[in-house]
Amino acid sequence: MEYFIQQLLNGLTLGSIYGLVAIGYTMVYGIIGMINFAHGDIFMLGGFAALIVFLILTSFIAGIPVALALLIMMVVAMLVTSLWNWTIERVAYRPLRGSFRLAPLITAIGMSIVLSNFIQVTQGPRNKPIPPLVNDVFHFGDVTVSLKQMVIVVVTAVLLTIFWYIVNKTPLGRAQRATEQDRKMAALLGVDVDRTISITFIMGASLAAVAGTMYLMYYGVASFADGFIPGVKAFTAAVLGGIGSLPGAVLGGLLIGLIESLWSAYFSIAYKDVATFAILAFVLIFKPTGILGRPEVEKV
């Protein structure tokens, strides 16, 4: 039982990270209907920004409190990835808006290749390890909870609350939802669609940056190739939950995290990704629009 709870906690931690990244996928998909393949690499950029900021911080201020360091890392990572995602949207996606569907998908895949290779070229192909940031561990009976797990879950919960508030209660959120429903109509009613979409990209990037920072803190390593696998998993999470649905993204993320850790614990670690993908395929076969996705009504 303790073992199970332990795995549940590990899954929850991992799932939180996936959920944060998945929101970026789902929001962009909801608002402009494109799979932003480069989003996983934005997450990777976020991790790298945090890593570099960490190195700079520790070399200038030796005894900086960890909480403060984490906060600065996170904020800088959010700023930098927001700049990137904003620029990418402006340069590579906006001109193709309303063009045929595969064009933005291909640009996004191209962008993903560009970003990971950009980091490989500028920062080198090797894994970048950092010393562990947070070491505290708590014991509840036989269950061990590390502080970093708690940080991840709490930060995710707080961000989700803020986020939920923005989307549901603010004029910005209303503009986003309007744009999602009907872009032309929203524009006619005075919603600045371009700006709304830009902000959506910025929000997605910020969440991805937080996830990237958490990922770095949790695993203590960053690599230029880290965008792909977590990116695909997060995208899988978004689809599993029902792409376009925010609660779906979080639910999907948690599910994927749980599947992964439980499968590794009870079956085989080698096939954990196979299990994830197989479950995705299985769910979609029976529920073609994901768990919380709106069923696609076939209009005849």
Partner: peptide
């Protein structure tokens, strides 16, 4: 290669 993909599509 990635840059070319983006450029051609644009």
């Amino acid at each position: 290669f990635g840059l070319a993909m983006v450029a051609v599509m644009l």
